[in-house]
Design a protein around this nucleic acid. Structure first.
Lengths: 248, 248
DNA sequence: TTCATAATTCAACGTATGTTGAAAATGATG
DNA sequence: CATCATTTTCAACATACGTTGAATTATGAA
């Protein structure tokens, strides 16, 4: 009966274009925030629309479906920070071959922070990870669930990107082994895994741990954790017990 | 019109009790399998019922709601393996105080596998984790999501159990530092975190990694990863670079 | 045999989800 | 001013979910 009372105060918003257009990247941003809060499966299209202050249908105007939204976020993110990682790797390679040409076998030139070039490369990677994914729990959550649960949609897409990151770190380790700076008895795949997962895990779990256990400012806690991790990792992979303990 | 055609061949099963009763633990097992496959949020009550070959309502006869099912699994699991961890810790404490009374400061008695008591304790913990949660991706998935996403239901329950595990490992590290066997410059909380998370992560991600990268039998790959992890970890925390490299 | 109780299923509820087809408003172009 | 493509919303669809109340059957005690 009282189906329509259009003189009502509240809802029937006009249809056509808004005064300021909503550009797709805003939708992606909203989607990212929602996925961060509710996970990829739990975050609904309606919630994304609510976050972007638009109708759910608009998402289907700009993207094919929910999966396409997910993939779009993914690609944007990886394409932003994979080049950074590649640059770090390239920088070390350049230095390393140059060093080898000069006949420096032990490769122990030290930079202004007291780190060897290889140490510096790993440290830069840690920092790159943090810069790119610290404020993006959604991204980490997507990765976590997509890789660990074998049925999540778009897993192939995810795995392709993950493999590229893995290869970059592997090359670094492999170069380090060849130059003699790293132990010869570490498994490349497995060590890469330790490095990468821990870098990400620190960002994932320290907010929680910090809240319940440690009580220092979060940024400080993550700083500390990264340093401790790098030292532990480096001691684990370095060839000789070098005395530059306090190099960080 | 043709709403009811009860002379149909298929579905209208009799109601009352079944010839063999379904005991609640079977429901929990089914729930575990479903959660493993689909996650805690994604795994539906209906799917659990399907897995247990019963009606969804039966789950509400035995448990209050979905969360209660989750919590029941959780408690059963933790109550099974936390005592194991405590025993390991106790065993080391006993040895350590005995050793201290004998005035052995460096504490380098070696067991039949060439490990110091502290090494042995950590190694046993790794093995305990594996024994208890390797075949339980559901459990690990529940933990991962419950701890990392701050809104998951029953997070307090989860955190209580996690904290107990954390404290056990922390005590081990702390004892080791006191006896001088471990470095004095490692942060207890953070190092505990590295140890625990990696133990779990190996079980989570190696099936995936192994399928796409490494190609060896899964058990073998996990064996190798655990050994490599323990060596890397130990080198990272041990006080002096001891020469028992091949002790595993 | 009768009767209470425990175990099980049926049918439905309200709500949320991903998605779609059509309608409407805007801005630009003729 | 008319037309048209673009952008936005509306209303609905089919399906799935967690949950509940009533109905049904089997079992064991009285």
């Amino acid at each position: 009966m009282l189906k329509m009372m259009n003189d009502n105060s509240s809802k029937p918003r006009p249809r056509g274009p808004k005064p300021v257009r909503i550009d797709p990247s805003q939708l992606l941003d909203a989607a990212q925030r929602v996925f961060a809060r509710d996970g990829v499966d739990g975050g609904s299209v309606r919630a994304i629309a609510r976050e972007a202050k638009c109708d759910p249908s608009l998402l289907y105007y700009h993207f094919e479906n929910k999966e396409a939204i997910f993939v779009a976020i993914l690609e944007q993110k990886f394409n932003r920070f994979i080049p950074d990682l590649e640059n770090i790797s390239r920088a070390y390679s350049a230095h390393n071959t140059r060093g080898a040409r000069q006949g420096a076998k032990g490769t122990r030139p030290i930079n202004e922070f007291g780190r060897t070039p290889l140490q510096e490369a790993f440290w830069q990677m840690i920092k790159t990870f943090r810069k790119n994914i610290q404020n993006d729990a959604s991204f980490r959550g997507m990765m976590r669930n997509s890789v660990a649960t074998n049925h999540s949609f778009a897993q192939n897409k995810v795995m392709n990107y993950v493999l590229r990151v893995i290869q970059i770190v592997q090359k670094l380790l492999s170069d380090g082994m060849e130059s003699g700076e790293l132990r010869g008895d570490i498994n490349l795949y497995i060590t890469t895994f330790f490095f990468l997962r821990t870098c990400v895990e620190i960002l994932d779990f320290f907010p929680v741990l910090n809240a319940t256990l440690i009580s220092m400012p979060l940024e400080e806690a993550i700083d500390l954790a990264e340093k401790q991790w790098f030292r532990l990792f480096w001691r684990g992979i370095a060839n000789d017990s070098n005395p530059d303990e306090e190099s960080l």
